[in-house]
Amino acid sequence: MKKVLLTLIIFLYGSIVFGSEIVIDRDCLLYSDLFVNGDNSKLTCNFAPGDEKILQYSVLQKILKQNPGLKPKLNSIKKIVVKRKGKLVTEEIVQQLIANLYRKSFPDIEISIEKISMNKGIYFANINDLRLNFMNNDRLGSVYYLLSNGYKNYRIYAYVKGYKEVFVSKERIKKNEPISNKVVKKRVEITRLLGEPVMDIDEYIASRTIPTNRIVTDKYVIKKPDAFKGDYVKLIYKSASIIAVTKGILEQNAYIGNVVKVKNPSSGKFVIAKYVGDKRAIILDY
């Protein structure tokens, strides 16, 4: 019965008095919280959920001096503690916030939260006020988050494992070999994976040897070039009066439209040229 009565009092007035302690259910302390005949004017604000503050005696003296007709609710006003109610942020709530964050940001990754470390005194007023974001670029493994309750920010630590369907080499793949027919899709743990998994494999070749049963990431592949380093190309020089053609050797992989370095095998000199396809490159300087 007492609990029901206290709940009703807080619902009606937004505060309740215990000796020299006032409990409020909002972010502002009103005159009506302190004085029997006080109105709903704001006395002081910025009470975060779970906050506990001491109201200075000098402040109350000043108010009473300016408003001698006010009648304090408390027997003693020398030390008044003001508390704002709040709901405790539990580990289960943080787990759900983390799960929602990954579901929104990385819908193709399944996660397993192995450990959470957090301040035990975090409170909130409404569950919708809680916001969780990444603190840095770490997404799996040891991850730090910033949790806001709408008033304060708190650092949260979690160890998160990630799982995803990715392409894995089913045999040894040599450098410059196409990878599309030498990989298989598997659900694997990617927590400690270096690089990003390659999901569009048709246009890629191995940039170095890929061992068997290795996750194919951008560290192992490149987009298949239109011409390879070491290939011979037609080197074309154009000016207002002449067009000259000679042979050149690509010093790097070439893609149509890219600028590449080409060696003239006759002179041993290097030139910069624009690769235009069909084993042709137009000299940009000489």
Rank of each mutant, 00 (worst) to 15 (best):
V17F: 11
L132N: 02
N75L: 14
T212I: 15
S117G: 09
D138V: 01
L130C: 06
S105A: 04
A273W: 02
K224R: 15
L70M: 05
I116H: 00
G150Y: 14
K42A: 10
N149G: 01
V245S: 07
K185N: 09
I222H: 00
N40C: 08
Y13G: 00
K53E: 11
L60Y: 11
Y220L: 15
D39I: 06
S15Y: 08
G277N: 03
R214G: 00
I116A: 00
K229I: 14
A227P: 05
Y157L: 02
Y159P: 08
L64P: 08
S76I: 02
Y237C: 03
A99W: 08
V23W: 15
K85W: 11
I190C: 02
Y204K: 09
Q66L: 13
F106S: 01
F124W: 04
V259T: 07
D278W: 12
I249W: 11
T212N: 14
I242G: 07
L284F: 11
N136D: 08
N213S: 06
L70S: 02
A227W: 10
I63H: 10
S266R: 10
G195E: 03
V183A: 02
N153H: 11
N126G: 07
V262N: 06
E189Y: 04
Q61T: 01
D200G: 02
Y159H: 07
D231M: 05
V94L: 11
L101H: 06
I54W: 05
I236H: 07
